[in-house]
């Protein structure tokens, strides 16, 4: 269940930035999760309340933005949308697709008091 560790990292980053910005409380954390990353957003949400409890981020809202996957098809020689991490090119059906987007896992910004 590595979403628990990732949620810990999210909360830790938020608390560090909150301290740095003199915040009393974290109201909302915006997280980008690529569609092809190793992460289930539902599991992050599930862990978040438990991890944030007792910290300045307790009760904060976790807003997860799912970023679409994309890749470069070596055979078509162009950028194509990618539905699964090691999936085929939607145009030629080949597997020589190098992932270029969708792997993101980032705390983008947050709203503080």
């Amino acid at each position: 269940m590595h979403e628990m560790s990732l949620t810990e990292s999210i909360v830790e980053i938020a608390l560090e930035e909150a301290r740095r910005n003199g915040a009393r409380r974290v109201r909302r954390i915006f997280v980008d999760v690529g569609a092809l990353s190793h992460v289930e957003p539902e599991a992050l949400e599930f862990c978040f309340a438990a991890v944030a409890a007792g910290t300045a981020a307790e009760g904060a809202e976790l807003t997860i933005e799912r970023l679409p996957g994309a890749g470069w098809c070596l055979d078509c020689d162009k950028q194509v949308p990618l539905a699964e991490r090691y999936g085929p090119c939607p145009e030629c059906g080949g597997y020589r697709v190098k992932m270029t987007a969708g792997d993101e896992l980032m705390v983008r910004q947050m709203e503080i008091d």
Binding site: L6, S9, I13, A14, L105, M106, V107, R108, M110
Partner: peptide
Amino acid sequence: GVAGVHVPGVSEERIVRIERDILSKN
């Protein structure tokens, strides 16, 4: 303000841009 963005209904000052990779600690 710090973020340089506007979100309706939210004071901009209270939005902090972070852009830190979640696996950056590890």
